[in-house]
Each structure stands twice: as structure tokens, then as C-alpha cells.
Write a protein that binds this DNA or RNA. Structure first.
Lengths: 349, 349
DNA sequence: GTGAAAGCGCTAACAA
DNA sequence: TTGTTAGCGCTTTCAC
């Protein structure tokens, strides 16, 4: 909380513009709000008065009566019970994932004149976030949540705050969401390995308490089952670079025959490539590697990463569109939009 | 702009809580605002009433009278006249720079209960951003601006909106800012090359219309001048990965004898390493490379990047502190806080 | 087509 | 210590 701002040179009010123009407050208000029933001549006069006084409407006053704020929150949720080496804030803001989501959402929001408040919500902050949303700071919420048992989506649902999820919710919920066909993506990776004639596929999967982690693992396994693999080694990572490195090392130590590695996101793949290098494995000759995301990390790898592309920017843009629709029509049916993944073939597999 | 939200189940007002508790509005207000002059017994009653009714204060109403919003904007400014391959939004949100700044700022802002609105401001959006700020949406602004001729800082100054800059302004301005000793950083790189016995240093510098670009180049040149280098080849890049790759290629083609390369940020260094690899140069054997930032990119490189560390998170945190100070005391003297860079030695030099 | 007036939910003088 | 009251600046009926 900050101290009150001192009086200072306050900007003009509607009242003052009205006086300047010699009309009533209502007329100025109508001109500002583009109401068409204003005499063109008066409108002209008022517009000049606005220009002359340098008037801008006061947001709080307007918001108080209209109950709109023209801004939405981007909530990055993380439930309790996860352990990470890196602190929450640097971890999420260093991950290219969030950047792509932000860019995609703003691509839609900006032209609509809607602003974005970014709200990290680790477990201790959940209550504050809910409070914030209840205070009417924003018209709606984009929720980035991956943990299957994350309570936040349900709570937001209960609050009747318009909201859209970044992925299929862990439990069914009457809330719009966007997702990618996770299993299909994983299958693409599996098929790539089969096509390359690899015999010992394995995977650094995502955290098994996330839907993406579960789905990608299941998709990979079931696609390989079709080719006779009743079982596939898997070691979970935490979607961070260091986590991927660690998991790959564990995996390759336990299963040194591994010649194909599916890593559940590009950031972990970066770490996995490092581990492989340290272990004296060549990529792709000894071990073929496929990542997931098609983020900047994929290009940073040597060799560059073959990966499953999910169009995060477009997905976030769609989230924003779904949210706007929901804000405009809160009782509409929740919608889901599922995107198709594609394999992007580069040097690693 | 969005349509008005329908009435729906409005949350309780102060009035209703007061009625429930059998006290006046003011008393409830005092309890909410932690005013100490409330009888403990009454306070207890009121708190129960708040609990029972599920009351939360309406932000707009409060903001209208207090003239505070408890939120600040993070404006990422970019003046007209720059050409980039990538669109503005994906470029800035994909750059680890912004992520580190955001994380650092939130580290200070969050505990204070202050929220962050993220506002990209390319040239066409400048007017809207100024308008937004004048409307009183936020209490202050953190400005990320690098272009020496960027008009935005001056305009914000004129608006009397509390603001803090991410770097020394292009022209002197009565505004607080944070910076790193750019020239010292560049000198560290130069000295590293001298220590390694390199004879043909060169630099992929930053855009010459940015203070950082200018300072790092000047610092590198003047440090080398001390060692007899009257002139040093330099090729400007645009601080992007692709730009660094292009610039390094140009430089190495024109000056194939180059055996030491200072690259003005890590993102460009990543690209430069790629270019060197393509040109058949080994790093560090044939060409030693030093970057600037110590971002995640530095770790993604092979070999890992020796780089000049600037503590961006701490710098952003300091920006936030300076801003809070300014909001609380708008007439205070503008302050500058300059951080010390350090060289982080890794594999590339 | 325009103006007068009520009121959005809150804080902060001021009185009691 | 508590209550009464007057706005904060705007939109929005409702008369005219």
C-alpha cells in the first residue's frame, strides 16, 4: 500500500469541460462515449473544449458506475507442494512459455484497448489473488494452470469471475479452455523414432501431477505400444532446464541402451542434450532427441532440436478471444478450442 | 471496450456490512483500513460481520476517493524508426531481459500489495499509453527504454506521473533511474581478451542509437586503446539472436583474423556462436567470445558463455523501490542507482 | 436532442 | 471512540 498522492495539479473534470463548452455534464459525457444522439454542432464545440482543457476521463469514477475496468488478469497458478531449485518468480518469468502466452494474449487484447495485469499465484498468494479478483480490479482472468489438483480454477468458477483456462482442467469444470492435442503430439514423437529405426526409446516426461505431463507420457507410451513396446522407460522432470538434465542423466544411467529420447518440453530437452553430451553420447547418432513446444530453446540447442510444435501464441490469442466472449456474455456455454501439434524436424532426430 | 457486466449477484457493500454489524459505515471502514482508534470489541463484531457477509472493498470506489490504485505499469518503450524481423510483441516477450526485469520488480511490489500492468509501447501505441497513464489507472511507471532519442521519458516527466527509468536517459531528465556501469563491463571483456593474449579483438556492438549500445562500444574501445589498439572493428547488431548471427558473420568475413569477439548481449552472442560454428571457427580456441547480461542464453551456449553479468533482477527491484519512494514523496530528489558489472568466466573465453 | 438529478461505494472531515 | 455528512467524477435514468 502506498501513501495518498498529494493534491497536485488535478486534471479537469467533466464538469469543468461542460462549463467551458457551455453545456451540461451529460452532453460532454455523451460526446466522450460516442452516443450518436448529439447535435453535430454541439459535438464539435464539446470536442474543442475537451481538446482545450486536455480532459481525460477518470478511470476510477467511470469504473465505479459502469462496473467495467477494461483490463484482465493473467494469473500464473502454482499449487502448494512442489519443490523447485529456482524461486517461483524467476522460474516462471525466465521460461519462454509465459512470454509466448503473454505476447499472444496481448495481440488480441491490445487492439481492444484492454490491459493486462500479470499475477503470479503461488500457493501463499492464492488468497490474495482471489481477493484481488473479487475487488473488481479486472473484468476477467486468463489462468495458466497445469497441476491437475490445482484448486484455483474451481474457486474462480465459484466466484463467477469470467475466466479461461490454458489447458483442460484436472477435473471437469464449466469453464472455457484452450489446449493442444497432447497425446497426438507425443505420438508424433514416437512415430519419428520408429521411422528412424530406433530400438530403445525412452522419455523424460513432465511432472505426473500435470495434465500435460500425464497426457504426453500416455500418448508416447500408447503410440509405442502399437509397435510392440509394452513398456517404455520414463523419468519425470519438472519442466525446467536443470530438471531435464538431471532426469536424462538418471535415465541414461539406468538404461544405457537408450537410443531415442522424447523430452516433454524444450527447456528440459536443452538440459537433456547437455546431459547426453556429458555422458559422451552424440545427438542424433547415438541418441535421437525430440522435444515439445518449439520454443526458442529448440533453436538454441546444438544440434537444433526436432520438436513438437504447439502454437502457444495462437492458443493464448484464442484464450483472450474466449475470455472477451465470456465477459460479454457471461451465461454463454463454455467452449473449448483444441489445437493441432506438428512435428518440426531439425537436427536432433 | 467490453459490454457492461450484467447486474448479477453483487457483492455486499460497506453499508450492508455496517447494518449487519449494527454500526455505522465509518466504523466498518475504519476496521477495514486498520485505523487503530476502534474499540476492540466493536472491531471484533465488525470483523465477524465482514466474514459473514463475505465483504470485499470495491476497488473503483476506494480509488476514486483515495486517488491511489495500488498498481504500477511496466512500460516497454520502443520509438519509431526501428526495423526488426520479428514482430514487437513476440520479440520483447521472448527476450529473457524483460522476464528478469518483471521478476525483479514483482519481488518488491508483491509484498507491498502492488500490482503490475504490463504495457508494450511501440510508437503507434505511445499516445494510448500516455492517455492510460493520465487516466489514473496506475500510481507510477517503470519505464524500459533504451533508445537515446525516445520521447516517452520526457513526456512522462511532463505529465508528472511518478516514474523510474531502466537506464540513464538519453538526455538529462529529472527522473530516477537505475543503470549498470556499462563502460566498466565492456572494459572487463577487453581485459579478458588481453589476458588471454588475443591480438585481434572485435565487437558485435549494440544498436548505436541506444545508450547501452554506445556505452559498451565506447568502453570496449577505450579499454583496448590503453593497450595500443587505436581502432577496433565493430559491427552493430539489434540485440536479437538473429541479429547477432548476422553481425558476427559480416564481421568475421571482413576481418577473418579476428580472434576475440565481444558481443553486446548474450542473445546476440548465442547467434554469434552459431555464426562462428558455421564459419568453421572453434570457440574459444580460434575465437574467444564474451557476452553481456549473464542471462539464460549464456548457459544455453556451447561452450557456455563467458559474460559480463548485470544483476537485472536486483536492478529491477531497485527500480521498484525508487518508484515507491517517488510515489510516496513525489517532490523528492530524483535518484540514480548504478550497479557494478562482473565478469563470469565460463567456457567461451 | 438536452439538462437535472440520483447514485455507484467508498473515505475523511467534522461533530458529537 | 463513534456517527453524520459531504463529496470523489462519472453514467444514466427521467423529464423536458
Amino acid at each position: 500500500m502506498v501513501a495518498p498522492r498529494p493534491p497536485g495539479p488535478r486534471s479537469p473534470t467533466l464538469e469543468q469541460v461542460a462549463e467551458y463548452a457551455g453545456v451540461s455534464r451529460s452532453t460532454v459525457s455523451r460526446v466522450i462515449n460516442q452516443v450518436s444522439t448529439v447535435d453535430p454542432e454541439l459535438r464539435e464545440i464539446v470536442e474543442r473544449a475537451i481538446e482545450a482543457t486536455g480532459y481525460v476521463p477518470n478511470h476510477a469514477a467511470r469504473s465505479l458506475v459502469t462496473r467495467r475496468t477494461d483490463s484482465v488478469a493473467l494469473v500464473v497458478s502454482e499449487p502448494a507442494g512442489r519443490e523447485f531449485a529456482e524461486p517461483f518468480l524467476s522460474r516462471i518469468f525466465t521460461d519462454p512459455y509465459l512470454g509466448r502466452i503473454t505476447a499472444g494474449a496481448l495481440e488480441v487484447l491490445r487492439p481492444e484497448g484492454i490491459h493486462l495485469v500479470i499475477m503470479p499465484a503461488d500457493a501463499p498468494a492464492h488468497q490474495q489473488v482471489l481477493r484481488y479478483l473479487r475487488q473488481g480490479h479486472v473484468d476477467g482472468v486468463l489462468i495458466i494452470s497445469s497441476h491437475v489438483a490445482d484448486p484455483l480454477p474451481q474457486q474462480l468458477c465459484d466466484l463467477h469471475v469470467p475466466a479461461v483456462l490454458s489447458a483442460r482442467p484436472g477435473r471437469p469444470l464449466p469453464m472455457s479452455y484452450v489446449d493442444v492435442e497432447q497425446q497426438t503430439g507425443a505420438r508424433l514423437a514416437a512415430e519419428r523414432f520408429i521411422a528412424l529405426g530406433r530400438k530403445h526409446p525412452a522419455t523424460v516426461c513432465g511432472p505426473l501431477d500435470t495434465t500435460a505431463g500425464q497426457d504426453r507420457l500416455a500418448g508416447f507410451r500408447s503410440a509405442l505400444a502399437v509397435h510392440g513396446y509394452a513398456w517404455v522407460p520414463a523419468e519425470p522432470g519438472d519442466f525446467t532446464r536443470a530438471g531435464g538434465e538431471r532426469a536424462a542423466r538418471t535415465l541414461l544411467t539406468a538404461y544405457p541402451e537408450t537410443d531415442a529420447l522424447f523430452v516433454a518440453n524444450d527447456l528440459m530437452a536443452e538440459g537433456a542434450m547437455q546431459a547426453l553430451r556429458d555422458l559422451g553420447r552424440r545427438v542424433p547418432e547415438d541418441v535421437a532427441v525430440v522435444g515439445f513446444d518449439d520454443s526458442v530453446s529448440a533453436l538454441a540447442c546444438r544440434p537444433q532440436l526436432t520438436t513438437i510444435r504447439q502454437p502457444l501464441e495462437e492458443m493464448a490469442a484464442e484464450m483472450a478471444r474466449l475470455l472477451l466472449a465470456r465477459i460479454r456474455e457471461p451465461e454463454g456455454r463454455p467452449r473449448s478450442v483444441i489445437f493441432h501439434p506438428e512435428i518440426v524436424e531439425r537436427g536432433s532426430a
